[in-house]
Design a protein around this nucleic acid. Sequence first.
DNA 1: CGGAAGACCGAAAAGGTTTTCAGGAACGTA
DNA 2: TACGTTCCTGAAAACCTTTTCGGTCTTCCG
Lengths: 351, 351
Amino acid sequence: MSRGSTEQPSTADGPRQTGRATLRDVAKLAGVSIATASKALNNQPQVRAETRTRVLQAAEQLSFSPNTLAQGLITQRSGTVGLLTSDLEGRFSIPILMGAEDAFGSDQTSVFLCDARGDNLRERHHLRALLSRRVDGLIVVGARPDARPSLGRDLPVPVIYAYSPSDDPADLSLVTDNVGGGRMAVDHLIRHGRRRIAHITGDPSYGAAQDRARGALDRLAEEGLPLAGDQVWFGAWSEAWGRGATRMLLQRDPDIDAIFAGSDEIARGVLDVLHQEKLAVPTQVAVIGFDNWNILAVNARPPLTTIDMNLEALGRLAAQRLFAAIDGTLGSGVETVAPRLITRESTAPLD
Amino acid sequence: MSRGSTEQPSTADGPRQTGRATLRDVAKLAGVSIATASKALNNQPQVRAETRTRVLQAAEQLSFSPNTLAQGLITQRSGTVGLLTSDLEGRFSIPILMGAEDAFGSDQTSVFLCDARGDNLRERHHLRALLSRRVDGLIVVGARPDARPSLGRDLPVPVIYAYSPSDDPADLSLVTDNVGGGRMAVDHLIRHGRRRIAHITGDPSYGAAQDRARGALDRLAEEGLPLAGDQVWFGAWSEAWGRGATRMLLQRDPDIDAIFAGSDEIARGVLDVLHQEKLAVPTQVAVIGFDNWNILAVNARPPLTTIDMNLEALGRLAAQRLFAAIDGTLGSGVETVAPRLITRESTAPLD
DNA sequence: CGGAAGACCGAAAAGGTTTTCAGGAACGTA
DNA sequence: TACGTTCCTGAAAACCTTTTCGGTCTTCCG
């Protein structure tokens, strides 16, 4: 560390009572007033070059670092934002978090992480704490892609809802375009010459399941193609359901040539049964997943073509929107982020 | 929100210039001085009960929330800590984070999240920012269970290293007991009557791989048992390596009755090949993994017995140690957290 | 040489809270 | 009535920085 290289400042060589150099110390060492020292460090123009360097040297020597609390107190801006997630464990929050943290990090903004663990009381508690800390803004990251209760309209800072939209249309929410994702998946299969496409997906109470199915059906309809297997196979977001549904599906409709799975987890189950049934992937049946959950998709046999929700981009976008809202005023409504196709080996043109 | 229920305070009904009620406003409304208001809100004894309730009511009415920045400025304690991780993406950081966040949350401490993304420069940058924000302490969460460079001895706040120990023995590091984990895994197999136990694990450059292997070998030696397969099969932390190694292993030593896999990912590969070879799990061959990575372990067929590193507990412990260190002084050396066995169906007593 | 303009610097207020210390009121005792 | 206690309350300093505004000094021009 650079602090290490200087003689560690102690009672002997300087007036350090609190253990840290303050602007006053720097000013004294540089032989100027506090005001001048401040200006010099902040690149204000009204200070001579020679004086500035003297101050800079003094600051360096004392390894001065400005007290952000005091700065925040006076500028009425803390330079912090709150990231209020309801479910850190769930794998979807993390990439959003990363994106947001990354975007803020390149500014001067630091991020408070709060995990409410799905508990409403804990959420309120964290909210109070964050407001008390005078965060400049808030990003609320939901656990499921369905609407969640708004934090309210009368908060003193801008709020952005990510992944789970707010149930108040006056709030600004950022979500992934699941309809577009479903459409994209089926489009990919169609382009590869598939005609008998089935769809196995998760819990029908999830908006995401409904939306993806709708996108898929829309795209099929445009092409005048029927949905293979006679229905959307709703069930659970699990490998086990993927296996079960595939078995039933094959029984009802043995000559499908593609399966769109509503998640990579389900896709793994699908692949598993296709293997057992000696149906070659992708030559006989193409499989496409959803989520691009790396550990599952990459290690699948064959590696899984899938739809990536671009969650990190969503997090970054949330950060940008919040940043813009901090001085300006905030928009409202629901904004969607386009997913993207990740092509691997589980899909290929039909001979 | 409670703020919502009051007439929203505006220019009309009160002296609100900055948009938020301040202690001065509360005091004025309650008809007392700022000092008294402060004491009343902080449960100081030198204030009459009647006055206290008057202040409390005023605070409630204005939905006052104290400015933590100002408090921190004067108390010389910000009530925040920094969580400096080098790799948010990696799945190991998350549970540690959750544990720490949870432990701090129940106190009054808020957590700054910083992801250095494995970049040294970014780490320094974040460190500077955190110190500038006057965090009361720091937890450094590594990406790999191997030693990492210390942040230095002369930081003005206590630092605790989690998962990756610091290379400076004067620092305090908290790590998982991988030797104990390896021992625990083999012990479990032995207790279930297994005698021909093999070990397939990941990248030998990882301390964790070496430690787990050592623990396993120790336990075997105690029992006078040889290691089946003639060697520890080091390779990569991947399903593919799990598959490859299992094939080679079976060729060399067809009648093993248990495999200890160095990670759940590897274990999945192992299970896969055992399936193909028609070796029944757990009746013929028992399999135990490491990490308790839920998505892999639970969905395996059969569900995987595995070793859980107790990372969330590690995070919580780190928080506690840091908390203790903030007033007192910090210990040093490496402290280990015991892993725990998660029994599922991939292991069972040999008839 | 006088004066105006410009460059640089410093005193002081402000931001919101905690805490110390002194003063005032009420009360009991001599 | 005078005085000592006990309780409450409030003025003011402190924490560290930014920013405004007035002041000093130099320089240049007439």
